[in-house]
Nucleic acid binder design. Structure first.
Lengths: 139, 139
DNA sequence: CAAAATCCATACTAATTTGATAGGCATTAG
DNA sequence: CTAATGCCTATCAAATTAGTATGGATTTTG
């Protein structure tokens, strides 16, 4: 029941690109260093993001990546779907018996609701402040 | 972003126990056969359910398992937490930067809301009918 | 042009998790 | 006693995750 580093680091990349949207290409090296991540690994994650058209690449010296659209038009769901596959708590929901099928569907819809209504703009604008939100720490 | 067979089969076991609650112990063999699952594998899954007190075992011939409480008092969240660990889309939410932390918390709370408000009674009562719910098939 | 910066592609690997299987001991109903 | 059942430990194969390694290909600066 976890989102792997693929989705998490992928979101990290996209948030960085959103923060610098309109300021020209951002290199993976910059993003890797700022977030203490492996540049090589990020390369593997951004490849599908490029292939599906969420980002565009500019090659050569002083190149990098830019968002294909404005941050308010790209959602967390767009990113997670590309890197983690379809958003669902189980594969083949249709094959489950009715009771569990209904449960998985409710969970799936709840997650989709959150991911599809959170844009990169939302995420980027909350990235600067370090304030703790009221509802932060509880399980 | 998946619930593994541990959680899914675990729920299957608990739903079966809920359906026969009050009718004496149910053996794993019965449950395994009814759901076409490996009895040995179910043994491994029910061990933590027994250790945490969600079910009680009756040893010996014609033994089996029974729920420790009425089906309306046990939730899907109780079962999933035991078999899958804490309900959260990422480990160490506290360590994430504010924007993503807020996103993970929203997802976590949405999932918890569903799991903690679905009881075994709900699930067991929907298990007999084979009717397709209106909102079944879409992604 | 040459060198540096950057993207691009493929292959390999170590660790972990998942989903079991195997075999035997312990307990109880009949 | 004996058959049916739970209980326990060990082992294992496949898949997934989280990277590393290597070597390009492309573009810009100087």
């Amino acid at each position: 029941m976890k989102i792997s580093t693929k989705g998490r680091y992928g979101l990290t990349i996209m948030i960085e690109l959103a923060k610098k949207h309109g300021e020209g290409p951002v290199s993976l090296k910059t993003i890797a260093q700022a977030n203490d991540l492996s540049e090589h690994y990020l390369e593997q994650l951004i490849a599908p993001l490029r292939n599906t058209g969420l980002v565009k690449s500019i090659r050569g010296a002083y190149g990098g990546y830019i968002l294909s659209d404005v941050p308010s038009k790209i959602t967390a769901g767009d990113v997670i779907r590309v890197l983690e596959g379809p958003i669902t708590p189980v594969e083949g929901i249709e094959d489950e018996e009715p009771a569990k099928r209904e449960l998985w569907i409710r969970i799936r819809d709840a997650i989709k609701e959150v991911l599809d209504n959170t844009t990169l703009e939302d995420l980027a604008s909350h990235s600067e402040d370090g304030e703790a939100d009221a509802y932060m720490f509880y399980i």
